[in-house]
Amino acid sequence: MTTGCRVRQWASRLYSAQTMQHVIDPVIADLQHEYERTKATRQGLRAGIVLLRGYCAFWTVVMVHVPAMWLHRTIGGLRTSHQESFIRAVVPAVLTMVTLSVALVASPAHSINQRDLLGAWLVILLLPQSIPFSIPLSLFTGIVCGLRLRPVTRTVRRTVVILGLAGTLVSAGTIAWVVPVANQAFRTAIARRVLLEGPAEMSSHELRSHALALRDQGRLAEAGDLLFSFHARWALAGAALVFAVFGLGVIALRLGRVATVLVVATACVVYVSYFEELHELARPRLSLFSHEGTALTFAWLPNVLMLVTSLACLTKRDDRRVPVKESVSRA
């Protein structure tokens, strides 16, 4: 009997032996028995329906219920092992994400005159724009608030770096695919006709090609503007990892509550302002950014500075830790 054997083999690569034994195998066993029993009664159509229902049950279990069970257990485990840290991290992170999203979307949303379903849809289309800022900053706030005054152990470092990498992947995906499409949909919905894509609606590849073409035509200011936007997109995508590491640096300093809040608020305001205001400040000299190196440097400058500062904080903290044996021999 080969019914369900191939899908079982596939599932065994994804799930542990215990999950296979207690959840997946019984589903396949039921599928095989029911199918064989119906086939033996020579009811072809009914056997087909049984097979279809069995496979539906299998895919529901594999794709929905087992991942949900795993997620439930992981979160439950985190909650019971580090309940206090978990709550202290999640609440500020969610609050920061919501506040930032609302703040960044509020200004363009205010200009929408529609107060109907279309208006709500337009606000939803604006939301992806806030994600490249809200993910790193909420991650940073969560890490700093949740792990404040805790030792930066190897497990903490590894968890924070994994969270940062996950945030970076989500940001990069949003910037690369979601934001251009959402922006174009927003413009089309407002204008009620198909419009040509502007720089904010172009994919990263199109943006760079367009910038280089403009530079070749000698339109340096426009080329600089676009090249900076191109590099800023990727710098913002990397910001989640940078802010996660920066959070570790801040924890390593073991600051008081007020100082921590000040550092978090300052970092968030400075970072958002840098990307929001630099463009305006550099407007008279945008041609400078037509050199790839200059655009890249200015776009990545905050990330690099924050990484260097974080590493310095982490190293300095390590220097301060004098091994017990050494301190005894010194005495």
Partner: peptide, 10 residues
């Protein structure tokens, strides 16, 4: 449901 019974049983 067939899809959820084994998760519940587990």
């Amino acid at each position: 449901k067939r899809g959820t019974v084994y998760v519940t049983l587990g």
